[in-house]
Design a protein around this nucleic acid. Sequence first.
DNA 1: AAACTAAGGGAAACCGTTTTAGGAGGGGAA
DNA 2: TTCCCCTCCTAAAACGGTTTCCCTTAGTTT
Lengths: 337, 337
Amino acid sequence: MATTIKDVAKLANTSTATVSKVINGSYSISEATVKRVRAAMRELKYTPNRRAQSFAKQASGSVAFVTTLERDVAFQNPHMFEIMSGLQHALARKGYSLVVIDMAEGNCAAVEELMLQKSVDGIVFHAAIMTRELSQLVLRYEFPHVVIGTPNFPSKLCWIDNNNPLSGELAALHLLETGKRLLAYIGGKEMDAISEARLKGAKLAMQEARLKFRDDLIMRGESTIDDGFDMTKTLLAGQTKPDAIVCANNRLALGCINALNVNKVPIPDAIAVVTFDDYPFSRITNPPLTVVNIDVYDLGMQAGKMILDKIKKPKLQFQTYITLPKLIIRESTKKRQ
Amino acid sequence: MATTIKDVAKLANTSTATVSKVINGSYSISEATVKRVRAAMRELKYTPNRRAQSFAKQASGSVAFVTTLERDVAFQNPHMFEIMSGLQHALARKGYSLVVIDMAEGNCAAVEELMLQKSVDGIVFHAAIMTRELSQLVLRYEFPHVVIGTPNFPSKLCWIDNNNPLSGELAALHLLETGKRLLAYIGGKEMDAISEARLKGAKLAMQEARLKFRDDLIMRGESTIDDGFDMTKTLLAGQTKPDAIVCANNRLALGCINALNVNKVPIPDAIAVVTFDDYPFSRITNPPLTVVNIDVYDLGMQAGKMILDKIKKPKLQFQTYITLPKLIIRESTKKRQ
DNA sequence: AAACTAAGGGAAACCGTTTTAGGAGGGGAA
DNA sequence: TTCCCCTCCTAAAACGGTTTCCCTTAGTTT
C-alpha cells in the first residue's frame, strides 16, 4: 500500500484538504502548519498520485504530439526529433508530459478519441499529417491545439512555423550575390507547402533583383535522393543550363550533388548548390553544402509554450512565423581555397 | 458537461456497473443487454473518460520512454526515432500510450518521481542514459522496465539489444572474404558498449580465420565525424597501413571516408570501409558504404511488447539479443563495375 | 417438488485527490 | 459589549469510472 495524502494528514495532525492546499499553494495556510505538513511529507516520502490528481483536477497534465512515425517518412524527417526535443523541454519545465502519437494515414479516429477521452489537455500537430478533415474535427471540438508548420490549405487552426519564404529569399539572395543569375529550383510536389514557400521566397529575391525565375528551371518531384538525382540530370540535359540550383531540402540536395558529381560538373564554378536545414552530413558532402538553417529545436520549444498558453486561455488565437533563418556558407557556393 | 457512464446507464435502462462491464468485457452479460448498452453509447457518442479510468483501474495505460533528447546527441542518434516508432506502435496496438521523457545528465530524480507518482505503468530506458545509480533505483522500486541496449556495467535489469557482437563478426568476415587481412577498427571510447561489442565480434571473426587484430590498428575516440577523420589520418600516418577499416558507427565512417578521399586513398582497392546501420546517406557517400544493418524499428517494437509483458507479470526476467544483423554490400568494399 | 447451480445484473464501496461551503476563533471597529 | 471581518482549517462532496458482493431468476439435478 502506497502512502496517500491521508497518511500525511494523519501524521501532520491535520486534514487532507490542508495537505492538498500546502501541495498546491494558492491558499492561506499558516506557516506553522505548512512546516508540519512538509515535514510529514518528507518523512513519509510522499508524492501525490498523479492519476488521482488528474482525475480530481480534471486535467491530465499532458500534451500529445501527433505526428507521423511512419518508418520511411521518419527518416525523411530527422527534424521531427529535434522538434520533439524542444517541445518536451518546454512542457517538462511546466510539469507537463509529452505523449507521442503516430497518426497513421488519415486516421482521424485516433485524434477524435484523444479529444473525447480527455486523455490529454492539448494537442500539437505536425503539419505533415494535417488534412482538411482533421482540421474540421479539431475546430469542431474546440480543442486546444497548435500546428507546427503551415497547413497547406486555408484553416483557422493555430499554427507556428519557420519563416520558409524568408529562407528561400536568403538562399536566392546569396546565390545572386555570388554572381549567379540563372537559378534553378528543385522542389517537392505542389502540395509540399514547405517547398512551395521556399520557392516563393526565392522568386521574390529574383524579382527584387529585376530578374525572373525561368519556369523551365523549376522542377518538382518526390522529396527523395533519387528524384533529386533525376531532376538534376533533366536540368543538365535541358537547353538552358542553370548556373545555380536551389534544392528544397536535404534529400533533394544529396541527389543533386551526386548527379552533378557523376556528370563532372564543377561545383560551384559551373553550378552552385544551396539547400536548407543543416545536418551533420551537410559538412561532408563533396563539396560541403551551403545551407539556410533554421532552429527547429526552438520551433518545438515555442510550440510547447504556445500550447500551454492555449490550455490556459483556449480563446487565444495566433498564426505566426518564428525563428529567423541563418545562412551557413560552405564550398558548394563559394570557390575552394 | 460531457456525457458520463451514468448517462449511458440511464438511457440503456441499466446500471453503471453493467455498462462498465460491457465496455471492459470479461464479465458475462446477456447479448440483449450488450446490444442495448452499445446502442446507448453510440447514441450519446460516449467514450470513457481516460482519467477516471486510470484512476479507478489504478493503472495509467501509458509507458514512459526515458532517453536523451539532448540537442546534439539526438543528431547522433537518428536511431532513437525509429526505436521510438516501433515502441509506439507496439504500445498503441494494445491501447497504451507512449510518454517521452528526456533524461538530462544523471537526473535520477525525474525517474524516481515517475515511479513514485505512478504516472506510468512501466518504463523503457535507452541504454545510453543508464547509470549504476539509476539502475539501483529502478531495481529498488521493483518497477516494470526494459532497457534497450546493453548497460555497460553488470546489472540485473531487463534488457534487449541488437546482436552487436554478431554484427561486428559479420563485418569482419565480409572483409576477410574480399581478401583483406590487415583490419583496422575505428571506434568510440572504452565506455561505448556498442562499439566495444562490435569490436569484440570483429576480433572473433579474425581469430576464427587464425588471424589477429593488431592493437595499433584499433583506434578509439569520440563518435563524431571529426574524430573519424582524425583517427583515419592517424592510421594512414602509421607504419603498418591497414587494408580495411571497420567503423563502429556512421559518424565515424563519414569522417573516415572523407579522410581517405582527401588523401586520395582508393576505396576499396587500397582500403575497404565497412560500418554499421544503414542510413539514406549511406548510399550516396563516395563510394557508397557497405553496412551491417540492423532493424531498429523492430527493436523498439519488441521492447514495447516486452514492457507490456512485464507490466502484466512483473516477475518476468529476461536479458536477450534480438534481430539478426544483415549485410548490405556496396562499393566501399567491392570493386566498382 | 425441493435443492442446487450458474448466469445476469445492480447497489454500493472504492480509487486518492481537489474543492467547496462553512465553522471556529481572534482582532478591530462601532 | 456587540458585530463584523479575516484567517486558518475541516468535513464532506465531488470527479467518473471499476469492482466486489449479493440478489434474482431460470435451468438442472436429485
